[in-house]
């Protein structure tokens, strides 16, 4: 792993998108940034632009309208990228599973790497998930170094398969 990657692993930039959650997971995600939990201890910075982000935090289940937006944000992020599904809704749509407008978890729109349960998950769990996401990111970087061509093929494969699901 080169020096830049080594530094990047110490500072993942995260982007948060609320697909259609009840706000519980969102405010717990924001609470991670604040003094008591302070995710900047691990170098994680919350940013607004998908082009800068290494990691996408998705809260809430995916509905017909937000699916397109989520997909759009995911496509704008640069490779390699990691998606973390926060809360039971983003994992399997939770209490809203009967509703007509709910498609399911975040994996209905984008490939998800880390799932955490809880309604809402505690900030400690969210921090843990971000750390797990960094590990995934390291693995992806390593793959990229070893098989630069093969990896990008794989990427387009997963994109196609999730597009079929929708």
């Amino acid at each position: 792993m080169n020096l830049v990657r080594l530094a990047q692993a110490k500072s993942p930039w995260v982007l948060h998108y609320d697909a259609s959650s009840c706000n519980g997971c969102d405010i717990e995600t924001v609470a991670c940034l604040t003094p008591l939990y302070d995710i900047e201890r691990f170098g994680a910075v919350s940013i607004g632009s998908p082009k800068h982000a290494d990691m996408l935090l998705v809260t809430g289940n995916v509905n017909h309208k937000s699916k397109r937006v989520l997909r759009n944000i995911y496509d704008q992020m640069t490779e390699p990228k990691v998606v973390v599904a926060i809360g039971i809704c983003a994992t399997s749509s939770g209490v809203f599973h009967q509703s007509y407008n709910v498609l399911g978890g975040a994996d209905q729109a984008v490939p998800v790497d880390v799932y955490i349960s809880g309604c809402p998950p505690r900030p400690e769990a969210i921090i843990d998930a971000i750390i797990m996401g960094v590990e995934k990111l390291k693995k992806k970087w390593k793959e990229e170094e070893e098989h630069p061509v093969k990896r990008s093929n794989q990427g387009s494969d997963t994109e196609r398969s999730t597009a079929d699901v929708g």
Partner: peptide
């Protein structure tokens, strides 16, 4: 973008289960 169809979901559950659904209208 956040429409989940909760009002319809509440008609499908029985009224005791709806407490949990009502709590998740908003997390704040």
């Amino acid at each position: 973008y956040v429409h989940r169809g909760l009002e319809k979901g509440a008609e499908l559950n029985d009224y005791i289960k709806n407490i949990y659904l009502a709590e998740r209208v908003c997390g704040i």
